[in-house]
Amino acid sequence: MEKILQLENVSKSFKGFSLKNISFSLERGYIMGFIGPNGAGKSTTIKLMMNLLKKDSGVIKIFGLDHVQHEIPIKERIGFVYDSNHFYEELTVQEMKNMVRPFYKNWAEGLFQQYVKEFNLPLKKQIKHLSKGMKMKFSLAIALSHHAELLIMDEPTSGLDPLIRHELLEILQGLMEDENKSVFFSTHITSDLDKIADYITFIDNGETVLSKTKDELLEEYCIVKGNKEQLHKIDRGVFVGINENHYGFEALSNRKMDVLRNFGDSVLIEKPTLEDIMIFSTRRNDNHVSTY
């Protein structure tokens, strides 16, 4: 299948933070959730993809093309939504759209007007007077009005109320009916991705922890719950992270089959959420004592 986005061993160093050998790829027609705690390097990775930061090493290909050599044709085919507004706040929605429009060869004015109606965007209002949700919707309307094949979203839901977040996720789901489009969606609110993501790439502290399909992930990982005595009998090597308290333990394993084979019904085995995977993996093997 055609790889629409491909990163191979991408590295970038700053004072006090480095992104180390990030690798993942996304196929056409799918949504990739890019997760990780704050400061993990998600925005840095997106900025490297958009050539807003220069990579130290590695390869970034978008639509199979080098992202620096073919920067302009690539950006023609990308829609972007960032975590905060970068449009000119002094301009009205209409003025801003008119400024952006001529730069896209494939601009579809009818489509934009359709989104204006659907999102109730006030064309004559200055961007600074729009709510955070409206700013995101305006950004999304711009991103979706030039037949972009890849939508790059950096924490688009951060700071939004659950209703608008839900609305955005529905729009993205609707968008995926067109099998030609792909979405790269970074977030630390993993529940946003439980419903819509096909692939999950998880980074922490500048390193790729995993990059798999969501189904594979949920197939391989499990939450194990049991009492303290059971924990002593268990080989802790099967766990990615353990949370112990006075009464028992809760742990995440990435070897679900081994857990099932070794412990059977003696422990409680549950399906993890993406949040479980993120929290246990970032804690690693620090035994965390809960306070209940």
Binding site: N51, L52, S84, H86, Y88, E89, F103
Partner: peptide
């Protein structure tokens, strides 16, 4: 000054503009 206030280089450079 307004461009810096809005941090708009990020937006401009994400558009297909040389």
């Amino acid at each position: 000054s307004l461009e810096e206030k809005n941090d708009s280089d990020i937006m401009l450079l994400s558009l297909p503009i040389k």
